[in-house]
Design a binder for these strands. Structure first.
Lengths: 270, 270
DNA sequence: CAGTGGTCTAGACCACTCG
DNA sequence: GAGTGGTCTAGACCACTGT
């Protein structure tokens, strides 16, 4: 139960003390209770009916207020049990892991948190040969008509999908190699590229936050109010030739992307 | 106008061809038109009334469908003109710029796009001395009761806020220095830290996507369906002492965070 | 079966801008 | 003033889950 403050001030009629709409006031109230912990993660939010009676608003108005919180990612509805405060358990995602082990004690500590949880990782891989989307064509410095090999992966942790990972390779580079085989490459695709004579020594990473596309919603089993982090990684050889482009789509509410960087030697502090 | 397919199949009555709810079907239809470009960025979406008549659904149902798209960040409503397809213009944000100039031609090209647009940057700075939030305390390896100096900045581009940038320094390190002065430090705060004997040589970056808090909504003037990217940067000296922690909040739909990395010397490709 | 949220309707009044 | 979206009501039926 909320603590029974009585009715909220309606905006509509002539009364017009006029502040915020009722549904916003309701959302504000509940949001405060959530952020202060009065409504802890996992706790049940009062039912629509209860809120409606408590605040003297129609069920539709109460629902509108609850929808605000759903779209902010603060509560979820699990019908027909009711609404619950969402749990947020963040894990770390470390794209750099191909290159090195954690170089610092702090990094070590953070990674351990994730790996000690006894998770069961798995993945689904398939390989296609396609004409690349514009953005990929641009990053790999290809021309119209050039083909790429794409390894598409959906990664699971405890049977929950958490990551879409598509890696694109220029067709000419990987033709006939292990990379076109839809099986896990245990020693890592980087290793294979190195053997083929294309060692990556430099990379550019782009990270973007946006709302998911319907396709991503279904593949990652997302609810409303859940943004995704899109991480694009382009790897270059020492001759500045792009040899691989990876698009990672991560569930925003579940993963933090982690980078570690070292100041380039011989660079001024400007 | 939509192309007049006639009524959508309602779920509720006994008819029950039963597939998706009407409002979802409407959202799906419009979403396709948007993603295919039939409704281009900036174009007006048919009015609620028009959609209601065209599909034989009540205004409330049509609104529900439109709300889905609003919360996906695909359309915006500007009352009382109507709904419009949202424009997406992404710029690049490069946290690394303190350390070096773009090291590669690709990076140069991307940065130029951003800087040639003739924007007018500005910022508001204020400085406080506070007890750090838990997360900051943790990153700076401080103990309860330790104080930090925080420089809070809101950055504007053409008078539109695009970035909240709060940097925390352990109080002991920067006491009496220029950093506690709420003015722009043109030569960069890193430079000042170096002069104080705390040169940063290593950093850890964390990037997270989430929906904004109400505070961020107002400071960044965000609409619904707009996630933020939260970028946390912790800088260390060569003795592994954390000397600064920065929290950047960026509007997801406007900025891409860009990192450039070089393979650490002498590391195997594993 | 009772109770939950999900969907949908018909209708009302409001604030705002200038189609 | 006409038309837009924003807010709000009262009421209806549905699907689902758990006591």
């Amino acid at each position: 139960m909320l603590s029974g403050q009585g009715r909220l001030v309606a905006m509509s009629p002539r009364i017009a003390e006029s502040s915020r709409p009722v549904y916003q006031q309701l959302a504000d109230l509940l949001r405060v209770k959530i952020t202060t912990g009065e409504l802890a993660p996992g706790a049940q939010v009062p039912t629509e009916k209860a809120l409606s009676e408590e605040f003297g608003a129609s069920r539709a108005t109460v629902r509108q207020g609850l929808m605000v919180l759903v779209n902010e990612g603060l509560i979820v509805s699990s019908r027909p049990q009711g609404y619950f405060v969402r749990r947020h358990e963040l894990s770390y995602f470390r794209p750099q892991s191909e290159w090195d082990q954690p170089a610092s004690p702090e990094m070590d500590r953070w990674m351990t948190e994730q790996t000690t949880l006894g998770r069961a990782p798995s993945q689904r891989i398939n390989v296609e040969m396609i004409q690349p989307p514009d953005r990929v064509m641009d990053r790999l410095a290809l021309s119209a008509g050039d083909l790429v090999v794409v390894r598409r992966r959906v990664r699971f942790l405890n049977n929950e999908p958490f990551n879409i990972n598509d890696t694109f390779y220029p067709f000419g580079l990987v033709q006939g190699s292990e990379i076109v085989n839809p099986a896990d490459i245990t020693r890592g695709a980087s290793e294979v590229l190195t053997e083929l004579g294309y060692e990556q020594v430099r990379a550019i990473d782009e990270v973007e936050a946006r709302m998911p596309l319907p396709d991503e919603v279904s593949r990652l089993e997302l609810g409303p109010g859940t943004p995704v982090a899109v991480h694009r990684h382009t790897g270059y050889t020492k001759d500045d030739k792009p040899v691989r482009h990876t698009v990672n789509v991560l569930v925003g509410s579940k993963y933090v992307i982690l980078f570690e960087r070292t100041k380039p030697a011989g660079t001024g502090s400007e």
